[in-house]
Every structure is written in C-alpha cells, then in structure tokens.
Amino acid sequence: MLHVSYEDLLRLAASYKYAGIFHADIIINGKPGFVEILIQDGKPFDILSVPSPRPGERWVTMLAPLGQLHWKLIAPETSNIAARNEYRAMLQSNLASSQAQLTIQQPKPHIDPIPRQKIQLQPDQIRQLPHRYRVVYLLIDGYRSPQEIATLLNKSLEETTQTLDILHQQGLIA
C-alpha cells in the first residue's frame, strides 16, 4: 500500500516503468467512491472513478484536493476497469455474432455501451419513478457502463440491462 498523492503515484510509476492497477477509496462532496488507474510502462493508460469528473474537469484537478490517498495494487479480475473493458469486449463480440446470424429477430431497443440521460428529470419527477428505475437512472452519467452500474447496485447485469431497456423505451436515456 502506498500513501501518496495522485501526482506522486504517477511520478513513481514513471520512474520505475511500472505496470498494474492501483485502487484508492475516495470521498468527494461527502459521497464515497473510488478511483482506479491502469498503468502500463509507467504511464496512465486508463482511469476510472466513481464519481466521475465533471464535464471539462481533468483527473488531476479532481484528485489533487484529496491530497494523499491510500493506493493499493489490485488484481485485474477485481478491477472495475477490467470489468468495464470485458463488458465492452463482450458487447462487440455479441454485435459481431448477431450480425452474422441470418435469422430475423424482434429488434431490441439499442442501448449505447455507456448510457446517458436523454432527459434531465426534476427531483420530484425522479421521486415518482419506481425505486428500481430511480436508482439506475441516478447512476447514469455518460461515463458508467451497465456493468459498472450493476456492480454499484449489487445487481446482475441482466437485471440492470432490463431496467436500462425500459428507461430507453420510455425515452429517458439514450
């Protein structure tokens, strides 16, 4: 475990040409979350955080005020980055295999790999949604994959995808 700032972690990784995934738990605006950095050849290759930076905000400006964090090296199979990338690879594989099928099937609503809110609901409108749809809708930020949303809610990917399909059919997400 390392107890260093984000910038210092990147400097250490660069100086030792490190490769691996570092995870740190964070609290931003009173909300718990995490940040994971995939480092390859000493350079950050991929980064994922919950919550995500605001549009236009950089990782450095988001993480700098947090100061020193407790970074731990994690196994790829426990990484949210790996889960997200595995889900994207699965989507691409499924898309390729479904295009290869000659049978005509009922078209399923298209959900982007990373769902985003199509309509910004007001708080009173959000409260009117059933709890199952509300919690998924609130986690859609244009950065999280369905797998990440399922993980955060401790739900199956199938259940989360069904909820996303319904929200898409209602025109709330794209």
Rank of each mutant, 00 (worst) to 15 (best):
H3D: 04
H3E: 05
Y6Q: 00
E7A: 14
D8N: 08
L10F: 00
L12R: 11
A13I: 05
Y16K: 04
A19F: 06
F22C: 04
A24H: 03
G30E: 04
P32L: 02
G33R: 08
G33T: 02
E36G: 07
L38H: 07
I39K: 01
D41W: 01
K43I: 04
P44I: 05
I47V: 14
L48Y: 10
L48F: 10
S49A: 09
S49L: 01
P53M: 03
R54C: 04
E57W: 05
R58K: 06
W59A: 03
M62K: 09
Q68P: 02
Q68V: 05
L69P: 06
H70L: 05
W71G: 06
A75C: 01
P76S: 10
T78G: 07
S79H: 02
S79T: 12
N80F: 07
R84P: 05
N85V: 06
E86T: 13
E86A: 14
E86I: 04
Y87M: 12
R88F: 15
A89G: 13
L91C: 09
L91W: 08
S93D: 12
S93R: 13
L95D: 14
A96R: 12
S97C: 00
Q101D: 12
Q106Y: 08
P107I: 00
H110W: 03
D112A: 13
D112M: 06
D112N: 13
P113C: 00
P115H: 07
P115F: 01
Q117I: 14
K118Y: 10
L121T: 14
Q122W: 05
Q122Y: 06
P123W: 07
D124T: 12
D124R: 11
Q125A: 13
I126F: 07
R127Q: 15
Q128A: 15
P130H: 06
Y133P: 02
R134Y: 03
R134E: 11
V135H: 13
V136P: 15
D141N: 15
G142Y: 14
G142V: 08
G142D: 11
R144G: 08
P146Q: 06
Q147D: 13
A150C: 14
L152I: 14
L153A: 14
N154V: 08
L157F: 09
L167S: 13
Q169I: 04
A174Q: 15
